[in-house]
Design a protein around this nucleic acid. Sequence first.
DNA 1: TTTTTCCTGCAAGTTATTTGCAACTCGCAT
DNA 2: ATGCGAGTTGCAAATAACTTGCAGGAAAAA
Lengths: 138, 138
Amino acid sequence: MADKNHELRDKGLRLTPQRQLVLEAVRALGHATPEEVAEKVRATHPGINLSTVYRNLETLENVGLVQHTHLGHGGATYHAAEELTHLHLVCGKCGSVGDAPIETAAPFVNTLIDEYGFKTDVTHFAIYGTCANCTAKS
Amino acid sequence: MADKNHELRDKGLRLTPQRQLVLEAVRALGHATPEEVAEKVRATHPGINLSTVYRNLETLENVGLVQHTHLGHGGATYHAAEELTHLHLVCGKCGSVGDAPIETAAPFVNTLIDEYGFKTDVTHFAIYGTCANCTAKS
DNA sequence: TTTTTCCTGCAAGTTATTTGCAACTCGCAT
DNA sequence: ATGCGAGTTGCAAATAACTTGCAGGAAAAA
């Protein structure tokens, strides 16, 4: 546990309960909007302010502990940096977010680098479409 | 020209100058935010209202003449349906939007269908990363 | 413990987009 | 041509999602 505390201190950040809660919430949720993070945090610490959540998400992103992506619709979604091992398959119909290993995109990513010099940021990679479930229903 | 008018009428829409201007603007701009579309339209028709632009973009999208995508940052960007022949390579540093033919992604798209049953919507496909230009500068 | 600096809560401020509503005008039917 | 009715527009107010200024409060260093 002592080690866990250090992960924030080591980044030069203060160890506040709010900050820890935000980080824990992001990790527990997998991926979530700021609003969802706030809701999760409020389960144990009702008083937390939305702007504190926003500010901490930004701070945590600056030190590399979390990242955000835009998954198609409106707001950004955050997830823990450790979780960056998969692509996000966003279903435009049901809104579900599926996963696929990043290797799936490796050939494609390489093509873009070779032919266009464009370095794809896999961590921000969101793929839009229709999931198997919704395809079956229609 | 008479034919051109029909493309809107045929969809069951009224032919208003605002509507035509919005559609023309989207086609002329390639891809643009609602704000940019409004600005373009105002070049020839200064009085047009922003909400009219929003409403028309939505209407035109409903009949399939334009489409929108979320290119990473905040707002949606619209483009004409005919223009859906390329992928968008969005640079997270300079914000530029490059193009690549959809075929580039074909193998990748097929993999996702085969392995996950996920049908990628190429028209909403936005790829996030760093463009050659910005890579060079850093 | 004292000080310095960072954080937090709160409220007000932005920015982007939507909506209610009355006036208007496009296109069908005289 | 002319009029009527529904689809449209402009305007202003309303939302929604964030961001920011500021003063008090709490970590961490001294």
